[in-house]
Amino acid sequence: MTSPLEQKKIKIAGPSVVTANRTWDGIVVYRTAAKSWSADLSEAAIVRNSDEAKALLAESVADDVGAVGAYIAPVQVGADGKIEPGNLREQIRRTGVTIGQPAQV
């Protein structure tokens, strides 16, 4: 996982969000514009340049009790404003494993 330390020099190629894992249970969460965390990607704050990304990441990392391991992740924003993960890793984090889980099959 790319740590905030490694993301000091932030360059983003497109719309991005800050994602992390909620501290008490570890689930995937996204930083919202209301300075909170949400498990729903559609509620994530979108950043579009390095300065915005840096600021959102700094604010997210500071909320160490709420979530852990915050980092910037790419997203795609559709014409209708719908937010989708920008790569396979983030797709898997959002929708879960791509395989049937043993207890469910």
């Binding site: 996982m1 894992n21 249970d25 570890g26 689930i27 995937v28 852990v68 391991g69 890793r89 898997i92 984090r93 879960g96 494993v97």
Partner: peptide
């Protein structure tokens, strides 16, 4: 205890 993609 590790932190992985979806959870601990």
């Amino acid at each position: 205890v590790y932190l992985q993609l979806h959870a601990y």
